[in-house]
Design a protein around this nucleic acid. Structure first.
Lengths: 230, 230
DNA sequence: CCCTCGTTCGGTACCCAGTACCGTAGCGCG
DNA sequence: CGCGCTACGGTACTGGGTACCGAACGAGGG
């Protein structure tokens, strides 16, 4: 295992050299105009080595996808007792955080995926994997198949919209945007009516607030304005 | 134009022969185990002819996708004055109706797409095209970008769930299922109370509460306990 | 010191999808 | 009959991806 995890030191790995060479060539000649041979040559390695480091040419552009998916899955497994869309949205935040941390690299990938159809397909296929994980998690506590699917899809959609806005430079605080978007989604699926006489308040508080006391006042007012309890 | 539109007569076209040969071979040897040469040979034509009839090997499995997409687009263009999700759902019904009409063929494709990853990617890429058309239509009368995206995604999701149920043989009346699913989606996006004028915070209150002031206090405490995000 | 085992890398050869090009057989038509 | 159009077949090529083989290298172990 010569590549433990993080490696900030100078002796760049073959993988890193290949990735740098690949992105450089993609910038210069475009994705389709760049052959794997050219990438390997610029990185100073053989063609075989490229396919050992990356499963495919597309994999150079989506390197951390598998790990991210596992992280998301693990997060949901850990929080599987909460039975809430909030668990899903928090798992989704992992993905958002990852892209934000990538910074400029994420934006370069965005440009590539926007212009190259095959990469675009690949990306949405990756999204579908998140959706699958979310759907299966939600189905553990949501009987309604359609509703579960709608929930999972809406969370993913919210994430995509927020991320895309940030990638285009139309957002300074992506996390705040994400909070607002998730709140909108939660609001969509909030029960209205259906009071089954159970007691005990259930309040979902979404980050992205002003002053706690002001929020509390708004909540109290909203509750009082609501139809009298049964 | 030797291939006008519908052709029930005996002299099968090259395209039809190729499609039959392809599906037969896919059944016998699997998708990946079948080469284009083998398909062409069984159909009694040259390899070049295959690529003239279908843009790619995958295209044999999704033959009518482009026409369907155009039909959907046309339907939305025609009904563009209605400004309603119903127009989208009716356009979506075109797609459902098409698959239902295909019958057994649709089910064979379903089995293939379920087992072959590359075909699965291709299929969801196709779905994404519907989604794009829907999103752009909705955006003509819906300012809220996220909400528009959620609407489009939900319609597509509803369609997929209904179609998949039917493909698995778990549904007798797919149209009725579709009606119910669409109703559920429309209900999701039905206006309730036009909450505007609120600031950043969004609070979702789920029925089944105690005393409003007590809830408000709990909310305030929860907010204060939460770490301010960075 | 030498031998060996394991790992990593390069090179070669191959498969197959997809493209470009060219030659030709057929058909309608003047 | 000759002309042009179209559809088809064949050949050759590009490029991603796989399989296999052999060389280099380092870590022990006798």
């Amino acid at each position: 295992m010569p590549t433990p995890a993080g490696r900030p030191s100078a002796p760049t790995t073959v993988r890193e050299r290949l990735q740098q060479a690949a992105f450089a060539l993609f910038d210069e000649q475009g994705y389709d105009g760049t052959t794997v041979d050219a990438i390997a040559e610029r990185a100073g390695v053989g063609r075989t080595t490229f396919f050992r480091a990356f499963r495919s040419k597309e994999d150079v552009i989506f390197p951390h996808h598998d790990e991210l998916l596992e992280q998301v899955q693990a997060r949901l497994d850990a929080a599987s007792s909460r039975h809430s869309l909030l668990a899903v949205s928090e798992a989704t935040r992992l993905v958002l955080r990852h892209y934000l941390a990538e910074g400029e690299l994420a934006r370069r990938r965005y440009e590539l995926t926007r212009s190259v159809p095959s990469l675009r397909e690949r990306e949405i296929a990756g999204m579908q994997q998140y959706l699958r994980v979310f759907r299966e998690y939600i189905r553990t506590w949501m009987d309604d198949e359609l509703r579960a699917e709608l929930m999972a899809g809406s969370i993913v959609t919210a994430h995509n919209v927020v991320l895309r806005r940030w990638l285009r430079g139309q957002s300074e605080d992506a996390h705040a945007d994400f909070d607002a978007a998730i709140a909108q989604v939660l609001d969509l699926f909030a029960d209205r009516g259906e009071r089954d006489g159970r007691s005990g308040a259930t309040v979902v508080v979404v980050p992205g607030y002003d002053d706690p006391s002001a929020v509390a006042a708004a909540v109290e007012q909203a509750l009082r304005e609501q139809a009298p309890r049964g």
